[in-house]
Simulated assay, not measured.
Amino acid sequence: MFRTLLLWVLAIFYAIVGYLHLAAPSGFMVVMPDWVPYPGAVVFWTGVAELLGAAGLVQPWWPQLRKAAGIGLALYALCVWPANIKHFVMDMARDDGGMGLIYHVPRMIAQPIIIWLALWVSGTTNWPFRSR
């Protein structure tokens, strides 16, 4: 029951953020690392990936698709970590301190948790829980 609840929470989160990537890409463009080629296309396709991943998590018919969606979203969260780090550095360098450590530190800590959560809710892993 708890796993299903978190699956829906994660899917809704990714659906909202995916929509925002498509509807308001400018906020994502600002934090895109300079070394990423075609940043506009990357923001667009990451939005599409988030929407497809969210749909894959909640579809009830094909467990393998749910696992693929979980793996895809975990890899996605790993790949966008550099953008989160750039946002952290840029924001903290502002004269006013930006959003501050109270925002950025939990966000940095949340990234590996989100990666694990995508794998756990999709049934890809049961770690650290044991099946009985």
Rank of each mutant, 00 (worst) to 15 (best):
V9T: 07
A11K: 02
A11E: 02
I12Q: 00
F13K: 07
Y14D: 04
A15T: 06
G18L: 03
Y19L: 10
H21N: 11
H21E: 09
L22C: 06
A24N: 07
P25A: 10
P25H: 08
P25K: 01
P25Y: 11
G27P: 03
F28Q: 12
F28V: 12
F28H: 13
M29E: 14
V31S: 13
M32L: 10
P33I: 09
D34P: 04
D34H: 13
D34W: 11
V36S: 04
P37S: 14
P37M: 13
G40T: 15
A41T: 15
A41Y: 14
V42P: 02
V42M: 10
W45G: 10
W45L: 14
G47Q: 01
G47M: 03
V48F: 13
E50F: 04
L51H: 05
L52Q: 01
L52H: 06
L52N: 02
L52A: 03
G53N: 06
G53A: 11
A54Y: 01
A55C: 11
G56Y: 07
L57E: 07
L57P: 09
L57V: 13
V58H: 09
V58P: 02
V58I: 15
P60A: 09
W61C: 06
W61M: 08
W61I: 01
W61T: 07
L65Q: 02
A68Q: 08
G70I: 01
I71E: 00
L73D: 05
L73A: 04
A74I: 07
A74L: 08
A74Y: 04
L75M: 02
Y76K: 01
A77S: 10
L78G: 14
V80S: 06
V80T: 09
P82M: 05
P82W: 06
A83C: 10
A83I: 08
A83R: 03
N84S: 04
I85E: 13
I85D: 09
K86D: 05
H87F: 15
H87A: 06
F88H: 14
F88R: 08
V89M: 09
V89D: 08
D91Y: 07
M92F: 10
M92H: 09
A93E: 07
R94H: 11
R94W: 08
D95C: 14
D96H: 14
D96V: 13
G97Q: 14
L101N: 12
Y103M: 04
Y103T: 03
Y103N: 01
V105K: 11
P106G: 03
R107P: 04
M108D: 14
I109F: 13
P112L: 05
I113M: 14
I113R: 08
I115V: 07
W116E: 02
A118R: 06
W120D: 00
V121K: 02
G123I: 01
T125M: 11
N126I: 12
W127T: 04
R130D: 09
R130H: 12
